[in-house]
Design a protein around this nucleic acid. Structure first.
Ligand SMILES: [Mn+2]
Ligand SMILES: [Mn+2]
Ligand SMILES: [Zn+2]
Ligand SMILES: [Zn+2]
Lengths: 137, 137
DNA sequence: GCGATTTTTAGAATCATTCTAAAGGGTGTT
DNA sequence: AACACCCTTTAGAATGATTCTAAAAATCGC
């Protein structure tokens, strides 16, 4: 019987990633990791936290999103040069981006196949291959 | 013999796109459409204009970049949520993004093949399929 | 509980981009 | 040329997302 057997799933989730499960981080983690695929901006998550009566500063939302990202619990997606998005799905996958509603929707990795990737530039490492299908209408 | 036979290539380029070839637009177009593949931010182009002794306001650089983009002379690329890039290559192609130096390099369309694109969401139109290969090191 | 280390916070600062409103330029008409 | 009309350029202010600062609060190991 490990010493953590009685911890909630969310606390375990944070501990496993090496993130100290403070009150605020737990509250945000509960909102983020609820099973749905989520693509949130800092401002969106801040609003959501307030709706759930969690008192938190916007700076802490930013701190936490970056912290979770560094710990591998989130990944950052760039689709809009005005706003950053964070994705709760950290596995390899791609995205639809609805330009009108600014919504992101996952494209599972197996729904798309990339062939003949060009040679990696000398001395460089590929960090990620991003595919964004921009749709509107 | 058309009435435009004696115009410079740059003026013709703008006229053909339906853009009035004003002094400032011509200066920026000369910098942008010099044959190289270019991926510039507004700030980069502004600095370049000043280096070439072109007196221009940053607002005009933004106006012109957006104008050229609307006219199909440029396209906008999103790789960094802090800054927008404009690409002089408006044909279909993809990009390497060097995360350390913030540089973009073209990947020709034939260097990469995408198979099995997922179904387009109902009622939507695909505006573009973007591929960004992020590299570092 | 205590002291060391993190975390949280409000508010200011930063930075890219857009907006405003006024001045400047181009073009066609008389 | 003078005029009218419309488009462009401009400086500077405004905006909005994000980061920074420095001090207060929370957390952790002992
Ligand atoms: Mn970031
Ligand atoms: Mn734009
Ligand atoms: Zn996703
Ligand atoms: Zn390009």
């Amino acid at each position: 019987m490990s010493t953590n057997d009685c911890l909630s799933g969310t606390i375990r989730h944070l501990l496993d990633a090496g993130v100290r499960p403070t009150r605020h981080r737990l509250a945000l983690a509960e909102l983020l990791f609820d099973g749905r695929e989520r693509h949130v901006s800092a401002e969106m998550l801040n609003v959501e936290a307030r709706e759930h009566l969690v008192s938190i500063s916007l700076a802490t939302v930013y701190n936490t999103l970056h912290h979770f990202t560094a710990a591998g619990l989130l990944r950052e997606i760039v689709v809009d040069s005005r706003r950053g998005y964070f994705d709760t799905n950290t596995s390899d996958h791609y995205h639809f981006f609805y330009e009108d509603s600014l919504c992101l929707v996952d494209i599972p990795i197996e729904a798309l196949e990339i062939m003949r990737l060009p040679a990696t530039p000398a001395g460089k490492t590929i960090r990620r291959v991003e595919v964004v299908v921009r749709v509107s209408g």
